[in-house]
Amino acid sequence: MSTLQMVIADSVTITKRNALKIRRAPDLLGGVVMLPIVFVLLFTYVFGSMISLPGMSYGEYLLPGIFVLTIVTSAQITGYTLTQDLQKGIFDRFRTLPMSPSAVLTGQTLSDLITNLTSIVTMAVVGLLVGWRINGSLWEAIGGFLLLLLFAYAFSWVTATVALALRTPEVFNNVATLVSFPLVFLSNAFVDSARLPGPLRPIADWNPVSTMVQAARELFGNTSAALPVPDAWPLQHAVPVSVLWSVLLLVVFVPLATRLYKKSVSR
């Protein structure tokens, strides 16, 4: 078996293992299916009934933000699973097997991709039921979903890196919550960043989450002429910049996570 064949075969094995785990674990499955549904309904009905936007419904404006919120929060499952495997000695067993060392992480992130796909489809269906609409072309919409998945995949590697650096499930969960909430709420996911107060505005404008949300809004056609895009450069070029962000995250965090994985078991 060549190295490449081995990486692929082993990644598939690990992906299958993680997918089985998620299917069997009610808590993980809840995070993948239930939480996204709750997010869509809660935000649409609670905020949607209070907030009105010029030229479009708030529910339509909101859904791309909820897509990204779910991607960021459900990435915690990745980290949680990894820290648990690390603690329970499962990585030790993997490391004594003649398998490809990088397959553990590629398998993990690929199974995340499957769960993200499930979450996004669930949200889109529930969203369509409660009034979200795709106003652009079919190709643009497909592009939107693919871009969300690319971003989600890149973000999995970020979480994997953080998890392997922190090592314990408890510490990881605390840090992840502490980081992911400001990351999502200091963005244009729920509010128009142009209306944020002074110092918060540039942060929100340059937040990669904002760029991703803006790109999704454009590709799904959830925009309005009455709601102009802020002047910030990344928001003006949201689609290419989102691709760039995702690629950049992959370039930085794939090697970093791989190195930490190798180090984490050799202690």
């Binding site: 075969a9 094995t13 299958k16 089985l20 069997r24 097997l97 398998m99």
Partner: peptide, 16 residues
């Protein structure tokens, strides 16, 4: 979360 059989099969697959 895996069954005993699945655990062993996974190891077998990883031994190729």
């Amino acid at each position: 979360h895996l069954t005993a059989a699945e655990n062993l099969e996974m190891v077998g697959r990883l031994y190729h």
